[in-house]
Write a protein that binds this DNA or RNA. Structure first.
Lengths: 224, 224
DNA sequence: TATTAACATTGATATATATCAACATTTCTT
DNA sequence: AAGAAATGTTGATATATATCAATGTTAATA
């Protein structure tokens, strides 16, 4: 496999010249993770950035007393950098696979070198970084100013519309994960989801979740 | 007043050459705001970045139903950019003066031009941006995983140690502001502060707040 | 298949937090 | 100085949320 012909590299890397891609090619390593395996661990040294080729993973902050806050899910062909790149070369969040996932680790020094020499690339990197920061601001508002049904509705709308882009998705994500993305306890998450099912807004079967009433869900998101 | 000799410009700008500073000089405007005046308004077009020369201001997200989330306070010689620079050239947060404040507005095109040509400057800009993003991550954990006393303790420790760097500070910040920084209602903020006073952790007089027991405050921050 | 371990569910209860209403104080305006 | 407006304060009450305990279900493993 070759970076130049690879069609599952992050959009960021399509801005590179063949020469630059060749440099990436020589300084990357591809790894396949199984569900539950840790791709990145918060608090460890950052030696590589990541391009997700295949699969799905959760990106989360490890908080207080083993509680996690899931910031977002990552899927092909997302790029995973992080604020440590320019700060302290540490990982400030963890990433764990939710299904079998193939990712490329790219040496951070090569990455930084290319940032300096290719301004199209660095502009797009800044855009990606800015989008993530803005998303964090929105999370902050939603998680602190809405109550549980509104927060869970935000999480589900995110999954249906942004991650899976479909009105049904396979239940690769646990109830605990849904709770961790919505800043509530697992018990509360289960109860809120039960309410949504009773109101025929979603249906949850053994292996998938189906969005039955998008309008109702959006309304719950709005009114908090 | 001249940017080259100015000793209250943001540290960022000390990395510029005299030539670059001259360009800044020709494309900046200095404005003095009085307490309560809006320096930046969320949702409007971003035409300038800001360097704070004198004073104190609150930087906040405008949330749901007129509720605000204060992200941080800005003081001399902070730089104020924001995720809009590389995204959509819009302001994603508002900034309001808490006391008489003098700030310089620097044309964003000039700013972007210098970013491209001076890598010391762009590296330091990235550091500043990353620090703010990391701070937002920490806020997200503290605000969603701690209860009210822990959140208020975080707010007060931030004010004493990071903003004023003193065990007392003038009450330029209202109870509503303290509530908005701690993600709680004003009523609740008043009650939590009353509790801290009853436990002799702080003292609040007409015009200042005094930290009496730093250890106790840190403990409340820890145990949430 | 038996056995654990992880994950899910539910109702009851306790706790945290917001809201409300009434009032006090300060600040601003005329 | 008077009035109005903003801000601060408090206790009572209602609501939201977490925790707990009991139990069920599914998935991993021997």
């Amino acid at each position: 496999m070759n970076c130049i012909s690879c069609d599952c590299k992050s959009q960021l890397f399509s801005l590179l010249t063949d020469e630059e891609l060749d440099m990436v090619q020589k300084n990357r390593v591809n790894v396949v993770f199984r569900p539950g395996e840790t791709i990145r661990k918060q608090g460890t040294a950052m030696t590589h950035v990541i391009s997700v080729n295949r699969g799905l993973a959760k990106l989360y902050l490890e908080g207080i007393e083993n509680r996690n806050a899931i910031l977002r899910l990552v899927k092909p062909t997302n790029f995973i950098g992080g604020p440590g790149i320019y700060l302290d070369m540490m990982h400030h969040y963890s990433v764990t696979a939710l299904m079998e996932s193939s990712v490329c680790f790219i040496d951070i020094h090569v990455f930084k070198k290319i940032i300096k020499q290719n301004s199209l690339f660095s502009d797009e990197f800044m855009k990606d970084f800015s989008r993530n920061t803005l998303a964090a601001y929105n999370r902050l508002i939603n998680l602190t100013q809405k109550q549980m049904p509104g927060r869970m509705a935000d999480t589900l709308l995110y999954l249906f519309h942004e991650i899976f882009q479909c009105n049904k998705f396979p239940m690769l994500i646990s109830k605990q994960d849904l709770a961790d993305h919505s800043a509530m306890s697992k018990d509360s998450a289960v109860k809120v989801l039960r309410g949504f099912q009773n109101d025929a807004i979603i249906r949850i079967t053994d292996n998938e979740m189906i969005l039955l009433d998008d309008e109702a869900m959006k309304k719950i998101s709005r009114i908090g």
